[in-house]
């Protein structure tokens, strides 16, 4: 008896035309079978929750069973337009992003430039710089709360020792957000450093050698060779940085709780409060979708800007 493969059995050879055509292309069907687990995972854990949260944003779901939640159309979005706390949180997220992304990128680039040199023990330093990245946000937060303590913290102790005025770092609305940014940069610099390092190491050495022969100094080499060739890395870090900054939550939740006086109440923290302290899931979903739209718009803007720069550089 002639043996047929599992997929050539009659079950798979019957059915509508598109199905039979599909199964007749053996390479394709094997490919689809390979991606099936990932596809199912994506569908169940990404697409379904996304669609579900979009649906929820049009409901007033505050109870236990979402199927009882009244459909209220765009009421949540209309309410959001006049929600002062939400817009304050969005403004804070924007402020945080403006501070954290450029500063974080510059500082991590500086570290990466040093770590890219052929120095003794450079691997140890790279590891040290990367260690905060793998530390938990809660542990990092507790350490920084202690360091920034207005009375017993080492930061103010140092300032006092130098005869400088002390600062209520996390208790003053003016300094709370910059303090959070400082902590975020400290924690994230190692990750950015690794990305910058990858970019730096992809730049051909010959270019620097040629520049040196032409009499270029290290500063000129940096501006004329390193930075332009790091453009894809810069673009990547800027986009992921903006996305990550708009989504900042853990540090705010653990360190300041959104205070003092709402100075660090960022968008995701506000969504969290609405969703899990007020159980106002419908409204929280609407806020989450608006945040998504804002991040998406910023990302598109960045992509558009980069393309324009690239096109401009052709002429």
């Amino acid at each position: 008896m002639e043996r047929t493969s599992f997929l050539e059995r009659p079950f798979f050879q019957t059915g509508p035309r598109w199905w039979r055509q599909f199964w007749s292309r053996s390479n394709e069907r094997v490919g689809y079978l390979f991606i099936l687990p990932s596809f199912v995972h994506l569908l169940l854990f990404l697409v379904v929750p996304l669609v579900f949260s979009l649906y929820l944003s049009f409901t007033d779901w505050r109870g236990t069973n979402f199927y009882n939640a009244p459909f209220i159309g765009t009421a949540n979005y209309e309410f959001m337009l006049g929600d002062r706390r939400w817009w304050n949180a969005m403004a804070n997220s924007g402020y945080y992003t403006l501070l954290a992304v450029p500063l974080g990128m510059v500082i991590s680039l500086m570290i990466a430039l040093v770590m890219n040199m052929k120095l003794r023990g450079v691997n140890l330093f790279r590891t040290l710089f990367f260690m905060p990245v793998i530390s938990s946000w809660v542990a990092v937060s507790v350490i920084w709360i202690t360091l920034l303590d207005p009375q017993a913290g080492i930061v103010n102790y140092t300032l006092k020792s130098l005869g400088l005025p002390t600062v209520n770092w996390l208790g003053d609305p003016a300094s709370a957000m910059p303090s959070l940014v400082l902590i975020t940069i400290w924690k994230g610099a190692g990750f950015n450093m690794v990305i910058w390092l990858a970019g730096l190491q992809a730049i051909p050495q010959e270019l620097y050698e040629a520049a040196a022969i032409d009499g270029a100094g290290s500063w000129q080499s940096f501006w004329r060779i390193t930075l332009p060739l790091l453009k894809p890395t810069t673009f990547f870090l800027a986009i992921t940085g903006v996305i990550g900054s708009f989504q900042v939550f853990s540090s705010v939740y653990v360190i300041t709780g959104g205070g003092p006086r709402g100075a660090t109440d960022v968008a995701v923290h506000r969504i969290y409060l609405r969703a899990f302290e007020s159980f106002d899931m419908g409204y929280a979903s609407a806020l989450a979708w608006v945040l998504f739209a804002v991040i998406f718009a910023f990302t598109l803007l960045q992509v558009w800007y980069m393309r324009r720069r690239e096109e401009a550089s052709l002429f």
Partner: peptide, 20 residues
């Protein structure tokens, strides 16, 4: 009142600003 945590949050913020 089920939505009291939200109202309470508004009152907390109000008093925080007043005390400042």
């Amino acid at each position: 009142y089920a939505n009291w945590p939200v109202v309470e949050g508004i009152l907390d913020s109000m008093m925080e600003n007043i005390l400042a």
